[in-house]
Amino acid sequence: MTIERFRQLWTHRYFKYSHILKAHLLAYQAWIYFKKKKAKFAPGQELIAIVRTEHFGDIVAAEPISRYVRSLHPNAFIVWFVKPSYHELIDFNPSIDETFGEFCVTQRRILFEKNVFDKVYPLQFSNNNHCAKCQVFLDNPIADRKGINVHTYFNFGNLLEVFAQTADLINSRTPFPADDQPRLYLQDQHRQKADSLHLPENFIVIHCQSNYAPKDWPAARWDQLVQWLSENYSYHIVEIGLKSNLTTKESSYRNLCGQLSILETAEVIRRADFFIGLDSGPSHLANAGGTTGIILMGSLGAFPSYNPYSGSYGRQENAFFVRQEGKMCSELSCEFVKEKVANALETSALTKGE
């Protein structure tokens, strides 16, 4: 072994085991914190945990579960476990008493082994629940028993129905038993940020990159779509997301990528006439915000055709799915997408009586 390789190995081990040690310490701190909190509860009051830590579209899709769990445990103290970067999606939810910013799955595993929580609702299945630094996967026996995993989950319904099943809230392949429309809890600060942007009166929000390449549509075709929209419609085009990969110079186009928080983005989408995007987090914000969506979708792994949404998008009441059976999103031609977008804009205008 060379000196350089030796150094790399022990640097890796140092950071790995330092991370694991920190996870253990934070777990014990959290256990003490919740023990003290629980000691002040009224007799019979429960401490309930809901676990959906990522991704933010999944957290939005799972929001109806917070209200359903509250209906099952009206007097409980309910804590939602989430990655810190997504805490704002939970912070303002009136059905949740506390947002717990999770350090990693090891911390959560140790905390739950202390049995301080009276009930845990895990909205995750085993092989999408991972800490890369600990190199640990956290199992969900409920999901394992039902056969729900990353290769099968869309065989069990939309995301809301899948998550409800992984928590044993409903039986397999059973519709969600309560209001299934996701909600957002936007605050004045989010509205004020949107006000400060001086958005045009009529605009379309676009989102062009997901967190998973097989769901994406090529940037060059997005550029063509923006040009076509600018030439044929009076709408301004506003792009949102983390980072733009477009090269368009259209005067009606505006790039807001990387400038907004999740809920600020949600408020911008809510104000738009239409959302055109991918099967990704912002499309779930559009669903929750009630903006008419035009969603570019394709086959995904073992799922040639699937519907991740509940609520109005799930019923396609104000959503148009742009897809071709068996084709990946990247395989959709620009002409095909333009045709479907034109039909959706026309149909929506007729519905609104414009």
Rank of each mutant, 00 (worst) to 15 (best):
K36C: 05
S85Q: 14
R145V: 05
L21M: 08
C208Y: 00
F125W: 12
V322C: 06
A39R: 13
L332W: 06
W222D: 03
A143V: 08
A342Q: 15
E325G: 05
Q209Y: 04
P214R: 03
E331C: 12
G57F: 07
L138S: 10
I295R: 05
L123N: 01
L197T: 01
S330M: 09
Q187W: 09
E239F: 03
K133M: 13
K340A: 08
W228F: 08
M1V: 13
T291A: 10
A30P: 00
K340P: 03
K37P: 00
G290N: 04
F321C: 02
A49I: 07
D91E: 14
G311K: 01
C131N: 12
G301L: 14
A178V: 07
Q259Y: 04
V51I: 15
Q259T: 15
K146H: 07
Y253E: 01
P94L: 11
L138F: 05
G281F: 06
W228Q: 05
A194L: 09
G353Q: 12
V105W: 06
A62E: 01
K36H: 10
K193E: 05
D179W: 09
L138P: 00
S252R: 14
A178L: 08
G353W: 06
F336I: 03
T351H: 13
F103D: 01
P304W: 05
I50E: 00
A342I: 04
Q324S: 09
W10T: 10
N318V: 04
R323E: 12
Y86W: 14
F117N: 05
W217Y: 14
E98S: 02
A272G: 05
A266V: 06
V226W: 01
S126H: 11
N307K: 11
K114R: 14
K16M: 12
Y235L: 05
W80L: 02
F77S: 00
E113S: 15
Y212Q: 08
Q316A: 13
A178S: 13
H73I: 09
S330R: 06
G301H: 08
E325F: 13
Q316W: 08
N287V: 07
R52Y: 07
E102K: 02
D179K: 15
G241C: 08
V337G: 00
L296V: 08
K249N: 14
A194C: 10
K36A: 04
H151V: 03
L345H: 00
Q189V: 11
P182Y: 00
E102Y: 07
A27H: 02
L160I: 13
N171I: 04
L47D: 05
L296W: 05
W80Y: 11
C334A: 14
